[in-house]
Simulated scan of single mutants.
Amino acid sequence: MWQEDRHQRIRALLSTLQRVSTERIMADLGVSRETVRRDLLDLEALGELRRVHGGAIKPADEAPIAERAQTHVKSKIAIARAATGFVSSGQTLFIDSGTTTALLAEELAKLANLTIITNSVDVALKLRGASESAESANEVILLGGTLSERSLATIGGTTIAEIQRFRADVALLSPVGIDHRSGATNFDHAETEVARAMVNNADRVVILADYSKIGQRSRIAYCPVNRIDLLITNRKATEAVGFPTLKRKLEQVILA
């Protein structure tokens, strides 16, 4: 089968199923795993799909959080550790939900005298009781609201209203994608509204995005590039097609 024919079949599968496994493509096209890998790389470069563990999804979609937690772990840990260098004792932080911010919570638990406001149950649990001294313990505020069906996080009008009661020094947020045109974007509407409220009520915005998110754009924009004070990503991000243009538009970029 010619390459373009394979690509058309893969596009058709994604259009029908929204998400397709490598095994399904191999069976439908009668080709090897290596051929599928090359085809998915080609189509991802064209922006027609996004590779995930075990297959591919349409570019606007987001993999389940349990699956995302297993991908690019070393890259996310490096980003989380780098982010702590931009946090100071006494600051108030907004942190949204996500696999990268969950790893960030583990690093922040080693620090002290922070007030951390989050809608993520996972982030709150990782930070709870981490400090041995009551005098230097971090204060953790878990925002109320409706529990999301997609992740262990609160969403909705109550969550937004609670965010608006606070003013944070820094919002540390992890989007589905970031590019030079739309800035930081998310897939889920309710989660996006939480992130947008955090942006609007923070003095500085730090975006945590591993290299796979660079140049990617999801459904809903919540933070334009001119509002992003710092992007922390990986050195491999420099290989992304959209990275040079994105970097020129950002105030500061750290490669972890």
Rank of each mutant, 00 (worst) to 15 (best):
R167L: 08
G55M: 10
R248V: 07
E62I: 05
M198V: 05
A66K: 06
A197F: 04
S89G: 09
V36I: 11
G144H: 13
L152C: 15
V121S: 02
K236P: 06
I178L: 12
L125S: 07
L172Y: 01
L127S: 14
L103C: 08
P64H: 04
S97Y: 03
L147T: 15
A82Q: 08
A27G: 07
A12V: 00
V121R: 09
V206D: 04
A82G: 13
D28Y: 11
L208T: 10
V121G: 13
S88C: 06
A195C: 14
A197I: 03
T84M: 12
V52F: 10
A168N: 01
E67D: 15
T158H: 15
E23G: 05
C223L: 10
V206H: 03
A56R: 07
I25Y: 03
D61K: 03
V225R: 10
T159C: 15
R6Q: 15
T238C: 09
D96Q: 05
G30R: 07
V52I: 14
A102V: 01
V176T: 05
T115A: 02
L250F: 00
S32A: 00
E191T: 07
S88F: 14
F187P: 13
R235G: 01
R217Y: 03
G157C: 01
R165H: 14
S218N: 11
T101D: 08
K76M: 07
R11H: 03
A153C: 06
Q252A: 06
A237L: 08
A256N: 14
L13A: 11
A184S: 05
I254D: 11
